[in-house]
Amino acid sequence: MIRKINVNDISNAIAKMCIEANIVIRNDIKRALKKAFHSEKNKRAKNILKILLENADIAEKDKLAICQDTGLCVVHIEVGQDVHLIGGTLKDAVNKGVEKGYTKGYFRSSVVNDPVSRKTKAKTYPAMLTTEIVAGSKVKITVFPKGFGSENKSRIYMLNPTDGEDKIIEAVVKTVKEAGPNACPPFVVGVGIGGTFDKAALIAKKAMFRDIIKPNKDKGIRSLEARLLKEINDLNIGPMGLGGKNTCLGVNVETYPTHIAGLPVAVNINCHATRSCTRLI
């Protein structure tokens, strides 16, 4: 049975989700920040964590963006194969929704149309849209505004197939170390292992849609997440890079089958403003 969904409904949902994601801190992130605040021994680090919690309260109360970098708006949509989208194109509907949400929310226009000449005035769209056809008759939308202080520090490594877990950890830790004080620690780190060059980057990004308190379902990957978190926190970068044991609030790893000749590892750096909102239509 084919279900008809008007793209205007998707557009309106996205507008609301842009506002919520940019203003209301995710529950898992808030919990992780509170935990970090309570566990931190370094006085300055503790005070910075306190201010970040205060920042989240002010943002929600006064409907202000958690961070002025309201980012490029990443939108991922899973479309059930029994859905027939009507009323226009999905791409236009998504961009319209992002523009509406960003304008209504008083968010920043950070999108420059020509990345080389950078001549035209910045806008709020296009969204960084990815779609996936899945089973069923529903549409699942995730809106993930991505700031560039941290995005700039993200890296991809094409490791050797025989490199194994230790080299993966080395690559992730190296990336975090290089991000250092510049990418707004405490971080949240998304790691994509496997696939092709682009697939690894995509699953690293999608790893961030997952609650950071929920570990990966696979036992081996779960233990890799725990090892990564420990090694990153042992770097003593701390909030704002001024020392402290809370360098990272969470590490989410996702994997995908890959080629016998390769081991792609994508590391997506995020700050505490790891913002997202998911809805089902």
Partner: peptide, 13 residues
Amino acid sequence: FITIAGAGAYLSK
């Protein structure tokens, strides 16, 4: 100088 990174709402006040 550095100021509180990631605290845009707090600093706006």
